[in-house]
Design a protein around this nucleic acid. Structure first.
Lengths: 342, 342
DNA sequence: CTGAAAGCGCTAACAA
DNA sequence: TTGTTAGCGCTTTCAG
C-alpha cells in the first residue's frame, strides 16, 4: 500500500474539541484565546483536552477570519542568466540575521527566490495575501521595478543603496563612507595606485567607488580610469579582474574589491602571478563575512553590520505594513584592519 | 498623520472583479482557474481585468477551501545556551539549496528557528496547518524528540545520520565512508598520528570518527584516545581543540576536523604555535563549504553534495506528505584533495 | 456556459 | 458565562 491519500485520521479541528469537551466551538475558541469571559474550569478543561490531543488552531482559517497575518516575505533575486544559486555568504548571512530578527518579533519568514528580470514577481507573496510585506535582498540594478512596486503600495523594503527619486525604503550600509574609509586606509599605508574591482553600475558598488575617489581627491590624487576594473560577482570574478588589470599593464599597489569573496579570489590570483600580498599589493574587501578573518592573510575589510541590518529591515517593514512611513536608513560601516593591507 | 490603519484602498477581491466584469464570482473563479466551462470571451475579459487591476487570488482563502497547501517548513534548531545565530556556512548553504529545490517544485519555504531544547516546537508550522511537512536541518542529539514527532505522524525529514531505532526519515552524507576516505588519504600521505576534532556524541560526527578508526584499523594502527579532542562548533572551536591537543603533549602529524570552519580555525591556531601546515601537520576538513578552496592553504576536505541534498530532502518530504513512505537516504561523499594535506 | 448557495475552520457580535 | 449566527474570500456542486 504505497500511498493512502486520505489518511486514517482526519486532522483535528475546533469542532472536535468542542464536542469532546461538551461545549460549543465559540467556547473553545475563547478558551484557547485566553478570553476572560470563560470560567476558569472550562478553560482549563478545554486547554488540557487540546494539549493532550495535540490540537493547534488552523492559522490559515484564523488569519482569514481575523484578517491578520504574522508572516513576512523575504525574496532573493537571482540572475536568470547564470541561474546563480543562492550562495554568496553575504546574502546567506543576511538571511540568517533576518530570521533572527523576525523570530524575535514573533514573525515567520517566507523565503522565495525570483528571477531578477521579472522583479515584480517579488510581490506575489504579498498580492496573494500570504505575507504582510516583502524584504528584498539585493537591489541590483532594478531601481525602476522597485519603484513600481512601491507605487503599487506593496510594503517593501530593500537592502541596498539610497538612490535619488526613490519611492521605496532602503536599508543599507553607508557605502560612500565605507569606500572612503577603505581608500583612506590604503592611502595611509602609502599606497597610491589603488585598483577598484566591481561593477559600478550597481548602486552600492558605485557608491563605494565614489567613496574611494573622494579619499583619493582629498589626498590630491586623481582617480585613474585604468585602475577601475568592472568585475562581477561570479565565482571567479576576482581572478578575472586580476587578469584584466595585469593585461592593462597599469601599475598598481593596492586592490579594493567589491566583496570579500572577490578579494579572496583576487589574492589567490595575485599570488599565482607571483605578487606578494600585502607586500607588493595590498588587498581590501567588503562585507566582513565570517570567513574573512580565517583567510590567509586575514582580510582587511569594511564591515557591514549584519545583525543590525536584519533588525532595521524588519523594523522598517513592520512600520510600512502598518501603514506608517519608513524612512530609508544607512547603517554605519566600520573598517576592520587585518593583515592583507598592512 | 503617522499611520492610517485602514488604508484608503481595501484589498481587491474576487467579488470586485466579478462586479466590474458583470459576472458572478463563480465565473471569475473558473476563468482564473482556466476551467474549460467558460467561454473564451468571458475568460479573456476576466483575466484581462484581473491583470490590469493587479488582482491575485487570496491563497489563504483558496487553501482553506481546497484543503491544499504548497508550502514546506524548514526549521533550523539553535542552541538555547549560546543562542547561536544561524551562521554556519554549511547550514546556510543547505538553506540555499533547499530554496532552490523547493522553487523548482513550485513550493514555498517557511523558515523558522526553534530552541533545540524544545524540538517538538518544530512541528508547530505543521500542526497549525501552515505547511505540509517539515525539513529539519541539524539532527544534533535529539533523536528521541524526532522519533516522537514521527510517531505523531508529522511529515518530517531531517538532515543527519541514520541511527538504529529511527522512526523518522533522514537524508545525509555517508559519514562513515567520508571518515574512512579522510583517514585513508591521510595515511596514504604517511601520516600515522591523526587527531580528530569533534563531538562524537553527535551522530554524524561520531560516524565520521568511526570511519577514521576503520581506516586506521585497516592500516594496522590502533586509534589513540589521546588524539580524540571533543571540539564543538563554537566560533573558535578549532583553536580551543588545538590548545587542548598541544596540552596533552601527545605527538600528532595530522588533524581531521569535524567541519571546514573548525579546520580553518585549527590551521590558524597551529600556525600561531609555529607549526607548519601541511609540513608538520596535515589538516583535513569536512563539508567543502564554498570558501574551503579560497583558504590558504586550500583545504582538503570531504564534500557533502549540497544541491543533491536539497533535492533529496524535498523529494522525501513530498513523498511523506502525500502519505507515502520515504526511506532514509545516504548521499555519497567525495574527497576533495587540496593543499592542506599534501 | 453561467449563477445561486453551501461550506472550508475559525472568530465575534448578539442573545440568552 | 455560554451558545447561536453570520461571515472572512474562495471553490464547487447543483440547477438553470
Amino acid at each position: 500500500m504505497p500511498k493512502s491519500p486520505e489518511a486514517d485520521s482526519r486532522r483535528l479541528q475546533m469542532a472536535d474539541i468542542a464536542r469532546l469537551a461538551g461545549v460549543s466551538t465559540s467556547t473553545v475558541s475563547r478558551a484557547l484565546a485566553g478570553s476572560k469571559l470563560i470560567s476558569e474550569e472550562t478553560r482549563s478543561r478545554v486547554m488540557e483536552l487540546a494539549r493532550s490531543l495535540n490540537y493547534s488552531i488552523n492559522i490559515g482559517a484564523q488569519n482569514l477570519r481575523m484578517k491578520q497575518n504574522r508572516t513576512v516575505g523575504v525574496v532573493v533575486p537571482y540572475d536568470p542568466a547564470t541561474r546563480q544559486h543562492l550562495s554568496d555568504p553575504f546574502f546567506l548571512s543576511m538571511l540568517g540575521s533576518l530570521a533572527d530578527a523576525l523570530t524575535e518579533q514573533g514573525f515567520d519568514m517566507l523565503v522565495s527566490r525570483v528571477d531578477a528580470g521579472t522583479l515584480d514577481a517579488a510581490a506575489t507573496p504579498f498580492d496573494t495575501g500570504r505575507v504582510i510585506g516583502i524584504v528584498l535582498i539585493g537591489q541590483w540594478r532594478h531601481h525602476d521595478q522597485l519603484n513600481q512596486l512601491a507605487a503599487r503600495h506593496v510594503p517593501i523594503v530593500v537592502w541596498g543603496a539610497q538612490l535619488p527619486q526613490q519611492l521605496y525604503c532602503t536599508v543599507g550600509g553607508d557605502n560612500l563612507a565605507g569606500g572612503e574609509l577603505a581608500g583612506a586606509h590604503l592611502l595611509a599605508q602609502g599606497r597610491k595606485r589603488i585598483a577598484f574591482f566591481g561593477d559600478i553600475n550597481l548602486p552600492e558598488i558605485g557608491q563605494r567607488y565614489q567613496g574611494l575617489c573622494q579619499a583619493l581627491t582629498a589626498a590630491g590624487i586623481a582617480a585613474d580610469p585604468a585602475l577601475l576594473v568592472p568585475a562581477s560577482f561570479v565565482p571567479n570574478g576576482g581572478r578575472l579582474a586580476v587578469d584584466e588589470l595585469l593585461a592593462r599593464k597599469a601599475p598598481f599597489d593596492a586592490v579594493f574589491a567589491g566583496s570579500d569573496l572577490m578579494a579572496m579570489d583576487a589574492i589567490n590570483a595575485l599570488r599565482q602571478h607571483g605578487l606578494d600580498v600585502p607586500g607588493q599589493v595590498a588587498v581590501l574587501g567588503y562585507d566582513d563575512i565570517p570567513l574573512a578573518s580565517y583567510f590567509h592573510p586575514p582580510l582587511t575589510t569594511v564591515r557591514q553590520p549584519m545583525q543590525e541590518a536584519g533588525r532595521a529591515l524588519v523594523a522598517a517593514l513592520l512600520e510600512l505594513a502598518e501603514g506608517g512611513v519608513a524612512p530609508s536608513v544607512q547603517l554605519p560601516t566600520q573598517l576592520i584592519i587585518r593583515s592583507s593591507t598592512v
